[in-house]
């Protein structure tokens, strides 16, 4: 039995969002083909989760720089760091990750960056060595379904994609080397083909789900 985390970052409703529709198609096909797996869905725009703030940075700073122990931190710092640790451990305990995100202004939605900062944590999911970071989440895999109005999987605009390459990079850092990508793209610049692009995206998502 595998544990799967399905992470979406789009505030739109399912009917109005291409990324939700493609993501849900993936999920349904995955459920049918992996009946024993446990799937948890997290919509980063619906669910509250611990994020890095002043108290957490201060708490970490005191422990790292000033050699203060956890029990000497103030109550709020302890509470927030505990909540963050529990969340990071929960996320890190999955076997497979499905990320579904729209591209906003050539980058990821801000709540996805906040999620990454709660997941990609030094000492928890990776550590630094002289040769750079080493991830703790090996033998796991991920797929990123990126939905965008324009086309970014190829030139001339591939260099403007600060979204998928970044997510792939941070997943690599924590040890997830196997990162697939499915681009569902271009439907805003070729309105006549929009329905075809979305339908193909749904088909592709179902195919990826069977093999994932």
């Amino acid at each position: 039995m595998g544990k799967v985390l399905y992470i979406t970052a789009n505030p739109k409703s399912i009917e109005n969002s291409v990324s939700h529709r493609v993501g849900q198609a993936f999920l349904q096909a995955y459920r049918h083909s992996h009946t024993n797996d446990e799937i948890r869905e997290i919509n980063l725009y619906e669910e509250d989760f611990p994020t890095i703030d002043n108290d957490i940075l201060n708490g970490w700073g005191k422990m790292r720089k000033n050699g203060i122990s956890f029990s000497e931190l103030n109550e709020v710092e302890q509470q927030k760091i505990n909540a963050l640790n529990t969340f990071t451990d929960m996320i890190a305990s999955a076997d497979k990750y499905v990320f579904v995100s729209p591209m906003w202004n050539w980058g990821i939605p801000p709540r996805l960056k906040a999620f990454i900062d709660s997941f990609v944590v030094v000492g928890k999911t990776f550590h630094y060595t002289e040769n750079g970071p080493v991830g703790h989440l090996q033998v796991k895999k991920a797929i990123h379904i990126q939905v965008s109005g324009g086309i970014y999987s190829q030139e001339p605009f591939a260099k403007m994609d600060y979204s998928h390459p970044y997510l792939k990079q941070v997943l690599n850092i924590i040890g997830i080397d196997d990162v697939e990508v499915l681009y569902v793209e271009g439907y805003e610049f070729d309105l006549e083909r929009a329905d075809d692009i979305i339908r193909k995206g749904i088909d592709d998502a179902e195919k990826h789900a069977l093999a994932f």
């Binding site: 980058g107 801000p110 960056k113 906040a114 990454i116 900062d117 970044y166 941070v170």
Partner: peptide, 9 residues
């Protein structure tokens, strides 16, 4: 994590 803070995004 090599990128801008989420509030800056």
């Amino acid at each position: 994590n090599f990128n801008i803070p989420s509030k800056l995004k």
